[in-house]
Amino acid sequence: MGFKLLSKLLVYLTASIMAIASPLAFSVDSSGEYPTVSEIPVGEVRLYQIADGVWSHIATQSFDGAVYPSNGLIVRDGDELLLIDTAWGAKNTAALLAEIEKQIGLPVTRAVSTHFHDDRVGGVDVLRAAGVATYASPSTRRLAEVEGNEIPTHSLEGLSSSGDAVRFGPVELFYPGAAHSTDNLIVYVPSASVLYGGCAIYELSRTSAGNVADADLAEWPTSIERIQQHYPEAQFVIPGHGLPGGLDLLKHTTNVVKAHTNRSVVE
């Protein structure tokens, strides 16, 4: 069995187990497998329904001669939608809004960016022009300005110390501490036991640490421990890039980060 097929099978099995364990909360999309990078042309966006009122959005972007996937989250909030992270750029984010209108038909009224990198804030200006209120932590807003990236308009308070959590509509926002970046936030959907790890969490097929220019490698494993301790009931975990899975993604990420750190020390 090929690795790609095995990865998709694991996603399907995880979703099936969740649907059985929580039949009222989960209505997993039966329309197909989780979209992969090879299936999404740059400039297009796919939506994948995880649970009743919960979707991931998947886009792709060219970077350094390669094409990478990027995940975000959409959560229903009454007759409105909360968006977590842009679709990595203005063109993708405009396509995301169009796809949401086509498939869901509810307005996106608020959006949260989970850290300051372009795959999370690139497209904020498109959201703002569409009347979406954009939010991020003060740290993310400051770092985005320093980096020359787009800056969300509103500040999220109460997320300055490791372990801080605040309720934001249908989700809980959690600051686990520094990891992929010093400002990275985690998003949890309690009604569906869905954990969105953003770039602080890796997919299972990833074996290298990737972009760690703004990471705190020493603190990252401790931050992941905080996530595990705060959300032990999480059933569906979405990484910032690639295929979702279960809580095993947290341990896998820790292993990859520690291996990278150990290699760096040896070198």
Rank of each mutant, 00 (worst) to 15 (best):
L5F: 05
G197A: 09
Q61K: 13
E101H: 15
I227Q: 02
G242L: 02
A15I: 15
E150L: 05
A111P: 03
G105R: 11
G169Q: 03
Y34M: 14
V187C: 02
V67F: 11
P244M: 07
A111D: 03
A66L: 10
V45R: 02
I104Q: 01
E157L: 07
S22L: 13
L250G: 01
L47I: 09
N211Y: 07
V194N: 00
L47G: 02
K8A: 07
R141N: 15
N211D: 06
L204F: 05
S205D: 06
D216Y: 08
V28N: 15
R226Q: 05
T140C: 04
E39Q: 11
S193R: 11
L249M: 07
A179T: 04
Y12F: 09
Y68G: 05
M18F: 05
S27F: 10
L97D: 00
Y196E: 01
V166R: 08
P170F: 04
L217M: 05
I20N: 09
P239N: 00
T153N: 05
E233G: 12
V265L: 09
D214L: 06
V124M: 14
P138S: 14
A87P: 11
V11T: 08
L24R: 12
V132H: 00
D79G: 13
V166N: 08
A21Q: 14
G177D: 03
S30D: 06
T140F: 03
G198W: 04
L6Y: 05
W220M: 02
S62D: 14
L250W: 01
T60C: 12
Y188G: 01
H117L: 00
E33K: 14
P190V: 05
V266E: 14
P221R: 12
G131M: 13
G105M: 08
G122A: 09
R120E: 04
S62F: 06
G32K: 10
A66G: 10
A192K: 07
E219K: 07
T253D: 00
N92C: 03
A144L: 09
V124A: 08
N255L: 13
L6R: 06
V265P: 13
P176Y: 00
L82Y: 14
I100R: 01
G245N: 05
L24K: 07
Y175M: 11
F116K: 04
L195C: 00
E101T: 08
H154D: 10
Q49G: 12
F174L: 13
G148V: 09
L247A: 10
I186T: 07
C199K: 00
S137N: 15
H241Q: 01
V121T: 05
T254Y: 11
S56C: 12
I100G: 01
T207L: 09
G65S: 07
V194T: 06
V42D: 15
G197W: 00
S113H: 15
L173G: 01
G131V: 04
P232A: 09
D85P: 00
T134M: 03
Q61G: 11
Y135R: 00
A144R: 14
P41T: 07
V112M: 10
Y196V: 04
V121Q: 00
M1Y: 03
S7W: 08
G240I: 04
L13G: 06
S264H: 12
S205H: 05
P23H: 12
L73M: 15
D248A: 08
I58Y: 12
S31L: 10
K4V: 10
G32Y: 14
G197I: 00
L127T: 01
W55T: 02
L156C: 02
W55V: 02
M1R: 05
V171M: 05
V124S: 11
N255E: 11
E145F: 07
L195T: 00
A165C: 08
N92T: 15
E233S: 13
L185P: 03
T222Q: 13
S181D: 01
A90C: 05
D52N: 14
I50F: 08
A25E: 07
